[in-house]
Simulated scan of single mutants.
Amino acid sequence: MVSERLLRLQNASENGLEQLCSLEACLQTRQQPEMYHLKVLLLLVIVSAMGGTLQHGLNMSIINTPSVYIKCFINETWLERHGTALEEHAVKAIWSVIVSVYSIGAVFGALIGGHFSVKYGRRNCLIFNNILTIVAAFFVGFSRMARSFEMILVARFLYGVNSGNGMNVHCMYIMECSPKKLRGIVTITTAIFISLGKCLGQIMGLREILGSESVWPLLMSFNALPAFIQLITLPWFPESPRYLLIDKGNRALSMNALQRLWGKRDFSQELEEMQAERAAISSEKARSVWELCRDPSVRSQLLINMMMSFLIQLSGINAHLVHWMPYCSMVIIFAYVFCYGVGPGELNHTDRTDLLGLRMDYGRSPFCNLHGHYYIETFKALSPACTMELGLI
Rank of each mutant, 00 (worst) to 15 (best):
L6Q: 12
G16C: 10
C21A: 14
L23G: 03
A25P: 02
L27Y: 08
Q28R: 13
R30L: 14
V45M: 12
I46Y: 09
I46D: 06
G51Y: 06
G52F: 04
T53R: 07
Q55H: 12
M60C: 11
V68R: 13
F73W: 07
W78A: 15
L79M: 13
R81G: 03
G83W: 07
A85Y: 08
A90N: 10
V99G: 04
S103E: 13
I104L: 15
G105E: 03
G105P: 04
L111V: 12
G113I: 00
K119C: 09
Y120T: 07
C125R: 01
N129Q: 03
L132T: 03
A137R: 00
R144I: 01
R144V: 08
A146Q: 07
R147I: 04
S148H: 02
E150M: 07
Y159R: 00
V161G: 02
V161I: 14
G164I: 05
N165I: 05
G166W: 02
N168Q: 11
C171Y: 13
K180A: 13
I188L: 11
I194W: 01
G197L: 01
C199N: 03
E213P: 02
P217K: 03
L219C: 07
L219W: 05
S221V: 01
S221F: 00
S221D: 02
A224E: 07
F228L: 15
F228A: 15
I232M: 11
P235Q: 08
F237D: 02
Y243G: 03
L244S: 05
L245Y: 09
G249Y: 03
N250Q: 11
R251L: 08
L258K: 04
K264N: 15
E272D: 15
A276Q: 14
A276I: 10
E277Q: 15
A279G: 11
A280G: 06
S283D: 10
A286N: 12
R287C: 11
W290V: 13
L302T: 15
M306G: 10
M306I: 14
M307T: 12
L314Y: 03
S315P: 03
M325A: 11
M325S: 13
I332K: 01
I333S: 06
A335G: 15
Y336N: 10
C339A: 11
V342Y: 06
E346C: 12
E346A: 13
H349E: 09
L355W: 10
L355V: 08
L356G: 09
R364F: 09
S365E: 01
F367H: 08
C368N: 07
N369C: 13
H373W: 07
Y374T: 09
T378H: 05
F379P: 03
A381W: 00
A381H: 04
A385F: 08
L390M: 14
L392S: 01
